[in-house]
Amino acid sequence: MSAAGSIRIIAIVGGSAAFLIGASIFLAAIGRPPLATLSQMVLYAFGDSYSLSESLVKATPILLCALAVILPARLGLITVGGEGQLYFGALTGTAVVIALPAAPMVVLLPAMLLAGAIGGGAWSGIAGLLRARCNVNETISTLLMNYVAVLLVNYVIYGAWKDPASLGWPATMMFPPAAIVPSVFGTRAHVGLIVGIAAAVVLHISVTHTRWGIALRVLAGNRKVAAMAGFSFVKQTLLVMALGGALAGFAGICETSAIQGRLQAGISVGYGLTGFLVAWLSGQNFLRAIPIAILIGGLIAAGDALQLYSKIPSASATIMQGLLFVAALGASGLAGRGTARHG
């Protein structure tokens, strides 16, 4: 087996073991039987068709936000802006619905989704432009812009777009049926999931089998060599940031339309951050991100179910995510170091 393959297996086994130990300690600390609760979570996540569809609903924005992290990572950029891009995409997509509430579905639905993607792409593109032109660190700019995008959504739903009929509740009007993203398989899961999986496959093929993929690899490795080969860092930075942001923005307008039915606060429960976690767990690999996003979507759906049935607050799912991230980073780091030393 290749060295990279054995590192990966050691990391996965070690990371899973460390996560299970950490999660058990946490559950024991809050007075819950660890094994019973963990197996209950697996049932709540994937036990029956309803649980599975809820997990897929959660996995959809997570997958799209993960792709928005992985694509820039292929150029060596670290963005944590999924949350802001998601919110800004929801904002621009909703703008179309507010402007053309009576338009027929063939016009309204594509226009809304496109506007959401463009909004997310533009929001992320700002960070890309700042990085490419002014050398502003993209991690910091995306983190700061997350808060601004959430505030902008609050601004419109408490202000100009607030529906008078919602009796003081800060939200826009309900979307007309022509602006509702269709669901698939007769469940709450929607078209966004199909788009996410298709995007992952297309991006994977693009970066492994095309000249564009070579450009990204060379630019990530050595920018001087890349410049001699005629690859532009500025152009590629803008491209990957905008494309990634467009996927996250698309996730935002899909959540707004298919899940909430109107723009309101809390359209995302940290999907951007969770997408970052998934991107990292996948080793910045588009295809691996699909099953991992579904697994983490299951973890979050199980967290919701635990809150409902066992009165365990849903913040426990955030703690579990944190523990999983710590375990995975630690295990892959240690596995990589051990092999480097002996091999």
Binding site: A315, T318, I319
Partner: peptide
């Protein structure tokens, strides 16, 4: 980011 996630979860829990 892992530490941030952990701190966010622990403090809200």
């Amino acid at each position: 980011i892992a530490v941030f996630t952990l701190g966010l979860g622990l403090s809200s829990y």
